[in-house]
Design a protein around this nucleic acid. Structure first.
Length: 115
DNA sequence: ACTATGACTGATT
DNA sequence: TAATCAGCCATAG
C-alpha cells in the first residue's frame, strides 16, 4: 500500500499529540519517538510552526530534566506553568518532578503512529 | 557552499 | 544545585 511518508513536521506533531494530559516529555524524547534521534532542536522549532487548529499540547514538552521550555519569567514560561498546573502537573522552581514524565508503551505508541 | 541561528543536550566545573 | 561549554543538525539567507 502507498506509504504516505509523513513529513518530519507531521511526525513530530503526531507524537506530541500522544502525550497524555498530566504528563510531560522532553524535546529529545519526542524526537526519538518520532524517529528523529538527535533532532531535539528541530522539535522545538516545529512546535512553534504548528497551527492553533491542531490544538497541540505544546506545553507538555519541556527541556531535558523537566525544566520549563522557556526562560523563567517570560510570558511563555508562565503560560506553560499555568497550563501544566491546570492538568495537575506540579511545577516548582521552573521544573517538574519525575512522577510526571511520560513513559509510553512503545508497542502501543508505534501502532498508533503507524510509521 | 558557507555562515548564522535556535522552544536542545549532556558533560564539566 | 546551578552555570558554562561544546556538540548537535535542520533551516534560512
Amino acid at each position: 500500500m502507498s506509504q504516505q511518508t509523513p513529513s518530519k513536521q507531521e511526525k513530530i506533531w503526531q507524537t506530541v499529540l500522544q502525550i497524555p494530559a498530566g504528563k510531560i516529555a522532553s524535546y529529545g524524547q519526542i524526537a526519538d519517538l518520532a524517529g528523529l534521534p538527535g533532532r531535539a532542536r528541530l522539535v522545538g522549532k516545529t512546535l512553534g510552526l504548528a497551527p492553533d487548529e491542531l490544538r497541540l499540547p505544546w506545553y507538555r514538552v519541556m527541556r531535558s530534566g523537566g525544566q520549563l521550555a522557556f526562560a523563567a519569567g517570560t510570558p511563555q514560561a508562565l503560560a506553560q506553568q499555568q497550563l501544566l498546573l491546570a492538568e495537575g502537573v506540579i511545577v516548582r522552581n521552573g521544573r517538574v518532578a519525575k512522577d510526571f514524565w511520560w513513559q509510553p508503551d512503545l508497542a502501543e505508541l508505534l501502532f498508533k503512529l503507524q510509521y
